[in-house]
Write a protein that binds this DNA or RNA. Structure first.
Lengths: 199, 199
DNA sequence: GACTGCATGTTGACGACTTTAACATTCGCC
DNA sequence: GGCGAATGTTAAAGTCGTCAACATGCAGTC
């Protein structure tokens, strides 16, 4: 009756007891260890000491499990952004904190981050919607103090800043900046980007 | 002795004659039609009317074929950027043209673009290096006319602008901006971004 | 407390995929 | 003309995703 095991673990009970959570936990681990390409439902079931058909009692298919992980990821991501935002008072510092949190999340959960922003169903996209609200709020605050042009649609500004952060996250995650022969940390990446974006 | 067929095509000769090119062409098509997930070496071989083992005479494995496609893609991408750059004289117009070309390439070759910037080997990353030189050159030119701060390392500026464009490309490609309820075209995305980045 | 239904697991199988080893054919060169 | 290397084929192993048929046990009812 114990909960999700982490290594190929033999069960005494016929029912696992908490397979759904164990699948999510295990999938998260396997994703972190092997990446999306190396993620296999069969291997996951094996690791949990359960038959390869068992996961289908909890998820329609492999993609549904990944979708669930995405939704979970968006919640984590949104929480991280919101937490980071609370420490800052100045709108510039706020945007900086959000940016660093953005890159940090991408660096700490590279596989989940990758899956979250890969081609997924509409349900996943909808789940992601609230995640980025802190960013829009911060942009509006920055407009109020003149750090961003007041006359422009805040959604347009948010989109640009979001894209900049996202691009930094994606490119640094896959060592894209190696091509420019600079290898700065998240802090510097965000600082330099905001130096250009804000006034 | 004819070259690569596009549909399951029967051959009269034992040797295909141009299997390597046919594989690359076919892979490009299949990638465009079905995306990376839907890309299968077996299906490709079948479509070319060749055994499933045949591709292994030309590529070490599935990934090697995709790598080759990436290298090809970088060349195409770089050429597109360079071509777009030639039409503009003003550095601001130059950056704008490069940006639009960036988004256009991502939109027209979404699958290849995705593979190019997915986690790939070092060889692929090296192959991508020259692709982004036009961008660095344009940044320097923009510094000269005061559109970008002159005192800053151009590589740092390039990195920021590159990330912005890349983020725009990635997020608009996967409908990320749906969350902000705006659905502009590439032109508008780039214009708004550069309005913030340049002075 | 036995009965029963539903959630949850297992078994076994199918078809597709990647990859390899062993064998066949042909091209190009001496 | 002959021969080796390049390029195909066949057959197989091993993995994976998925499903149908069957087994088990938990929960609630009489």
């Amino acid at each position: 009756m114990q909960s999700g095991p982490r290594t190929p673990r033999e069960r005494t009970t016929y029912h696992h007891g908490a397979l759904r959570e164990a699948l999510l936990d295990g999938a998260r681990e396997m994703l972190a260890e092997r990446g999306v390409e190396g993620f296999s439902l069969s291997a996951l079931a094996r690791r949990l000491g359960v038959s390869t058909a068992a996961p289908y009692r909890h998820f329609a298919d492999r993609d549904a499990l990944l979708d669930a992980l995405c939704v979970e990821g968006y919640a984590l991501f949104g929480a991280a952004l919101e937490r980071a935002g609370r420490t800052a008072d100045d709108p510039r510092a706020l945007l900086h904190a959000l940016g660093v949190a953005y890159l940090t999340f991408a660096r700490e959960h590279p596989a989940v981050f990758g899956v979250m922003f890969a081609e997924r169903g509409d349900a996943v996209i909808d789940a992601g919607a609230p995640t980025f609200e802190p960013l829009v709020d911060a942009v509006v605050a920055a407009q109020d103090v003149g750090a961003l042009p007041a006359g422009t649609d805040p959604r347009v500004l948010s989109r640009t800043i979001w894209a900049s952060l996202h691009g930094l996250a994606v490119l640094s995650r896959q060592r894209g900046f190696v091509k420019l022969r600079i290898d700065d940390d998240d802090e510097a990446l965000v600082r330099d980007a905001l130096a250009l974006l804000l006034r």
